[in-house]
Amino acid sequence: MKPRKVAIIADTALDVPVDFAKEYDVFLLPISVIFSDGEYRDQIDISTEEVYRRLHEEIPKTSLPSGEMILRTFDAVAAKGYEEALFFTLSSGMSGTYNMLHLMAQEETRFQSFVFDTKNIGLGGGFFAMHAAVLAKEGHDLASIKAQVCDTTKKSKQFGKFKNFEFLEKGGRIGLVTAKIGTLLNIKPIISVNDDGIVYTAAKVKGNKKARKEMVELLSQFLEGHEHFCLSVQQGEAEEEASIMIDLLEERFPGKPLLEGHIGTAFGVHTGPGMIVIGAYIYK
């Protein structure tokens, strides 16, 4: 029996590269970006670069994909003849996208579907969708892809650091006093996402050089005992810093595939320019 065609859908908070999405026919479900002059669909009405440019003037809000966009995506999947669909979402601990998609997918009768909560953000979740897309193109059916990709959320991990506390303070994520003390002491919090899909502080160090070293060490601890993994470096208007992190990762993990990318809108509006995130995905 020929495997049924499987559609792969990822919300744009997972930062699946647009070129990859085109090559592997991944449907990108846009989150909403809300500025004072209107609401925009991420990667359709507004680019990540434009969002970062406007951050210096205004910090927008983000929201889960609209019900209308979800229904349009369902229609597009059905129109292309897909009989099965696998949806990947930003952590349910950060957004209502998973819950909304899960409810709406239950009402869809044109194709069989499964909604996977990655418990992550950015490429930490995007790697799941990319792995699934490769398997789908190879002809695997939904059950096979779920068994290989959706068996656990614990095979993906990211660690990130901020340039400074400016945008966290502006966005109300931390208080003014905390921001000033952190800046004065040159404290660099290293953040990650826990097993429940919630952002937490994994470590605090003084100075940028120590922060880089600690991030690589934390990632090494996560990967201990594993051989089959790929790496990622994402940056938010911080290309020079990203280049340094790439060199450090290639030195620690020689020969491992490494994906470079830009931190997307979902994370970038809260952290601002200068953010660096490194990560790894264990695919076997």
Rank of each mutant, 00 (worst) to 15 (best):
P3W: 05
R4A: 12
K5E: 02
A7F: 05
D11V: 01
A13R: 00
L14F: 08
V18Q: 04
F20Q: 02
K22R: 15
E23T: 03
Y24E: 02
D25S: 12
V26D: 01
F27V: 05
L29I: 06
Y40T: 02
R41M: 04
S47R: 08
E49D: 15
E49R: 15
L55P: 07
H56R: 12
E57Y: 08
P60I: 10
T62P: 00
P65A: 07
M69I: 07
I70D: 06
I70M: 13
R72L: 04
F74I: 10
D75F: 06
V77S: 00
K80R: 13
K80H: 11
Y82D: 02
A85T: 00
S91L: 03
S92D: 11
M94F: 01
S95C: 06
T97W: 05
T97H: 02
M100S: 14
H102L: 08
L103T: 13
Q106I: 08
Q112C: 08
F116L: 00
T118I: 04
K119F: 09
I121C: 01
I121V: 07
F127W: 08
A132R: 00
V134I: 06
L135V: 03
A136M: 09
K137S: 05
G139N: 00
D141C: 05
L142D: 03
I145R: 04
K146H: 07
A147H: 09
A147E: 13
Q148P: 03
C150I: 10
T153N: 09
Q158D: 14
Q158E: 15
N164Q: 11
F165M: 09
E166P: 04
F167Y: 14
L168Y: 10
E169W: 11
K170G: 04
G172E: 02
I174V: 09
A179M: 03
G182W: 10
T183L: 13
K188A: 04
K188C: 08
P189N: 08
I191E: 14
T201H: 08
A203K: 12
A203Y: 09
K204L: 13
K204H: 15
V205C: 12
G207A: 03
G207Q: 10
K210L: 12
R212G: 11
R212F: 14
M215F: 07
V216G: 10
Q221T: 15
L223P: 11
G225Y: 07
H226F: 12
L231P: 01
S232N: 13
S232Y: 09
Q235S: 14
A238N: 09
E240T: 08
E240H: 11
E240C: 10
E241R: 13
I246N: 11
E250R: 15
E251K: 15
K256C: 09
P257T: 04
L258G: 00
T265G: 05
A266T: 10
F267L: 12
G268R: 00
V269K: 00
H270M: 00
M275C: 14
M275Q: 11
I276S: 08
I278S: 07
Y281L: 07
I282M: 05
I282V: 12
